[in-house]
Design a binder for these strands. Structure first.
Lengths: 133, 133
DNA sequence: ATCGTTGCAAAACCTTTGCACCAAT
DNA sequence: ATTGGTGCAAAGGTTTTGCAACGAT
């Protein structure tokens, strides 16, 4: 599962703050807001650094923002070019990603029929997950 | 306790700031961020009031937040209980709402197959609109 | 007359910037 | 050695709160 990506990809240094932020995101399988992240890492990582780390991660597609919560979550999907699907539990906050070709197609169809050229889509399904029901 | 919110329009007063904010949202058929709104209404409406008006509107389902931009847009659809579709032009910023029963069904199906009980979904299709192409 | 609504001032918050030092490669 | 990353301090910007006055119903 988790691959230790200690390779030097485009000047991406393996530092303590980054490892800590990454671990924190892995621990909670949900979207976490920057403020919560640096609350959790208080004393260990400077708040400013948390923002910078998140930005770096986002630029490299390691994390992305979750639409309804605004928090950051680890990218768990091969991230097939701009088609993001989220299943969000409003009780426990768990966020699960999904990809669905048919949904994409349907979305493209909708765009076309309105004269839009679709480039990417984000779908957020909010509900209650199995273990919270 | 909570006052009965069942009076005709639920104690929703027709005031100058509200008319101005509403008009501003109508003028620009796109999602507008709070900061831009009070920049446009500078001198006419207090910034604080802009936030309060937006919150009041949102609570009454008159406006909603647009996922990718974070701005507010007038609700142009009958708002059929939590199924929001947006077509967003990344060039001109225009936001067009849509509803699509099939998309909804498909989203519900995806939720079910992952053990989620779907309550609402938001779809944001980002691309380029006809007149910007 | 009653309450919700507004404006103002100030506070609270979150996020970014600048800069010198440090560390991973 | 180089280059990017970090911490600290401070600034910047947005949003919220408290309170007295106002005004729509």
């Amino acid at each position: 599962m988790v691959t230790s990506r200690t390779s030097s990809i485009g000047g991406f240094k393996d530092t303590r703050p980054r490892r800590l932020v990454l671990r924190e995101l892995q621990k909670s399988k949900r979207a976490v807001e920057p403020t919560e992240l640096h609350r959790r890492l208080r004393g260990q990582v400077d708040p400013v650094t948390v923002y910078r780390v998140l930005r770096a991660f986002e630029e490299r597609g390691l994390v992305h923002r979750h639409p309804s919560s605004g928090g950051f979550a680890l990218c768990t999907m091969p991230d097939t070019s701009g088609h993001h699907g989220f299943l969000s539990c409003r009780k426990c906050g768990r966020v699960q990603e999904f990809v669905d070709k048919n949904l994409c197609k349907q979305e493209d169809r909708i765009a076309e029929s309105s004269g839009f050229t679709s480039e990417s889509h984000v779908t957020d399904i909010i509900g209650v997950c199995q273990s919270c029901r």
